[in-house]
Nucleic acid binder design. Structure first.
Lengths: 206, 206
DNA sequence: ACTTTTTCTTGCACTTCTTGCATATTTGCA
DNA sequence: TGCAAATATGCAAGAAGTGCAAGAAAAAGT
């Protein structure tokens, strides 16, 4: 019954979980490396699996599809956006909540790795499609978060429009980042929101 | 050298072209029918090809991919939008140009077939991804058209933002159409634009 | 009318992604 | 240690997509 020194590393909740995380990370890293090196279509799953030291079957066990290896690197974004928006004062106008929340998150994602990833996605049609699909999930979650924060119905039109606009500008900012990697997406995003307010503010002539 | 009565149907520019159009249309029709009946993933290319009376190889010769069979039914939309926007008075505010142009096009697409197609796409993850990707093409073309109409630079921020907003609202309107097939997407689109103006008009408190 | 040339169709082989299933192998726990 | 659960792997099969070359059909030239 010697329970002493059962775990040398107290934060790891078991060898199994740790190995799983390591394998996951190894597939991600090797996958991204090979995709950038040889193109997403140029690198096969067998190559990635071999580089990660697992069988192809196991790789697909971890990721479900080739695309998922790429998108898993962005998997945290939706939740981060939701949190950033939820942290805003609830008396703030909808559009400001969105602008502020997205700017917070964008600032945290200006890493070289993320730039590489963004480049890869924009170079690959198949990944672009998947990327846009993921953004729709973001939009949905964002709209819902806004509605909760404001105490409105989950399908409130204003919240959905605000979320849609936020995501649209986020996409544009991503493209702008690729064009000007030294600036980061934030500046463009701010400008886009400013332009939007100016544009929508002016009423059409009667 | 009797060239008399060479062609009974003068408007057909050759048997080859006509057959091509017929085959194209037959694959579209049978494809859509089978996809709706058995699901996009439930129907194989072999089945569609057989139903259309061609080989699988020929089908892929016409369409390039399974998805293209579906999206070819929406292929005219980008051009229609560009035309509708280009037909607007050029002194109109950007947002009004977009709203008006999109409403024109939307009105022309409220057919039962298009509703079926929209349903199919929204039921199928793979098609949703492709759909969003196509919308990006629309957005790009729309932004460019706006810039030309206004005599601005092709990458003008205001035009890009206006285009992005228009496409976002178009997507939302499509979803609203699925939820309320009796109304059509127009009403929701109008409301969304109104909400947007109201939202963006109110300046944040200093 | 006949031949030539061009275009289209088809079959075949091949690669790759993806899934299902059965079978080891490893890890956690009593 | 020994049993149960989770994990890894191999194998088989299905389906999408691509390249190639032979065959069929239409158009053009003579």
């Amino acid at each position: 019954m010697q329970e002493v020194q059962e775990k040398v590393f107290p934060d790891e909740q078991g060898l199994r979980a740790r190995k799983r995380q390591e394998t996951h990370a190894r597939i991600q890293a090797e996958g991204l490396r090979l995709f950038i090196e040889k193109g997403f279509d140029g690198a096969t799953l067998d190559e990635v699996a071999a580089a990660a030291g697992v069988s192809r079957r196991t790789l697909l066990n971890y990721f479900g599809s080739k695309e998922e290896i790429v998108f898993s690197l962005k998997a945290q974004i939706p939740e981060m956006i939701a949190q950033a928006v939820a942290a805003r004062p609830c008396d703030e106008p909808l559009l400001d909540m969105v602008e502020g929340g997205l700017a917070d998150v964008a600032a945290r994602f200006q890493t070289p790795d993320m730039l590489d990833l963004t480049r890869l996605i924009h170079q690959t049609p198949a990944l672009q499609a998947g990327d846009h699909a993921k953004y729709e999930g973001v939009e949905r979650l964002l709209a819902q978060t806004l509605a909760e924060r404001k105490g409105l119905a989950p399908d409130d039109v204003a919240c959905r429009v605000a979320a849609a606009i936020g995501v649209s500008i986020m996409k544009l900012a991503g493209e702008a980042w690729l064009a000007h990697p030294d600036e980061g997406p934030e500046r463009f995003g701010r400008e886009a929101f400013a332009v939007l307010r100016r544009m929508a503010g002016q009423r059409p002539p009667p």
